[in-house]
Design a binder for these strands. Structure first.
Lengths: 223, 223
DNA sequence: GTCTATAGAGAGATAGAC
DNA sequence: GTCTATCTCTCTATAGAC
């Protein structure tokens, strides 16, 4: 933090500073883009959030569009890397529960990333359609094939495997994207608490596992 | 802005024209706001979509902010009116299924309304927080009380009733807000089809009813 | 590499003819 | 009520001093 104007011209140190500044700008941009979308965000707001003059944004990224793409690409990579590798040999119940937990941790820890992604989808995904129709489509198809295999192996009950994945995404990501809604309804003045996320996580896991016949049928209260 | 020469709409032909023009502008605005959010939307784009000169927008609504509020207020009213009145005496299974169907029909028929609302939530709901903490909070609390009554009456299995409502909203609204994502993953070149919505609706109903012990435990394929 | 100043395009809003 | 022309402010992007 203290030494910033170093005179050494090692290619490493120059590259390192450049990377650090870009990261700092991208982090600020993620916040601003999350809240205002691409068109609603201004380079001035991003510069402010990064604590830099506006011109530096353009020095590092050229255009606002370029910066946005860099941010979105980063998020796409995060999304894909967060997808646990699952195989036919895994245990359905624990694998599904782990996946739901991982998605909820992303919602808790990277809500802005989720919101940038959500903004992009709401607008019709002009910049990430290729990713949706490519990597993401392939991912869903390969994972739902594994779910189908579990079903045909008798390891879990028959389910609509593709819709099951969609349900998980919807129920988990909403805790990042629409946090304010849940926060208001639950009466949390200072935003959601860890306990809220835990309770939601457990509820989602229960819902999904019951749907797959991986939890005993809940019993009704006797009359 | 503060002095009003004609604050009440008179029941003559001029008032009727005024109402029709306002509706036309609001319909166009809903589309534009849905795709770009408040800050990303321009009055020029809204005027174009409405087929009117820019000045007419200001003639009827004064400011962009005022127009946005009118659009959002309309959507809030739609949301609340769509909430079926349910009572303790209703049948849990059919009531939940009906509610899910109603929400999915809204996603199918009014996707832009859902997206305007989603945009507002993503940015922290600066304009509708009172509604979230007021009418909406009350609605959820009264409905979850009914669900709890059903449980204590032995009409359904014990569930986290508040989270159950959240899950339903998340799973249904995602089909409007993130339509492009599901469309790409399912390989629909021309957007989602009626059959996609039917399949999703059935899958959500099954998931929720199983979670409430209102459907028999799905059986695994025998080995 | 960093920052100030500013050009040029586009935004919201209004005046005033019709 | 409708619409053109235009005002003013803000935005993206760049030039050029340091």
């Amino acid at each position: 933090m203290s030494d910033k104007k170093e005179t050494t011209t090692e290619p490493n140190s120059q590259g390192r500073i450049r990377q650090e500044n870009k990261k700092r700008i991208m982090s600020a941009a993620e916040k601003v883009f999350a809240e205002n979308g691409f068109r609603g965000s201004t380079t001035a707001a991003i510069a402010d959030a990064a604590g830099l003059p506006k011109a530096n944004i353009h020095y590092y990224f050229g255009t606002k569009e370029e910066l946005y793409r860099a941010v979105v690409d980063d998020i796409v990579e995060l999304w894909l890397s967060s997808f646990r590798e699952i195989t036919e040999d895994d245990d359905p119940a624990s694998t599904l529960a782990d996946y739901i937990r991982a998605k909820m941790e992303l919602s808790r820890n990277r809500p802005e990333a989720s919101r940038v992604f959500a903004n992009e989808l709401i607008r019709g995904a002009p910049r990430i359609k290729p990713y949706l129709s490519g990597d993401l489509k392939n991912w869903v198809e390969s994972k739902s094939a594994i779910l189908d295999k579990w079903v045909s192996d008798g390891k879990m009950a028959p389910v609509d495997s593709t819709r099951l994945i969609f349900h998980i995404w919807a129920m988990t990501q909403t805790w990042a994207d629409f946090e304010v809604q849940w926060s208001c309804i639950l009466g949390r003045q200072n935003g959601l608490e860890d306990a809220d996320f835990e309770q939601a996580t457990n509820s989602i896991i229960t819902t999904i596992l019951r749907n797959c016949g991986l939890l005993p049928l809940p019993e009704r209260k006797p009359l």
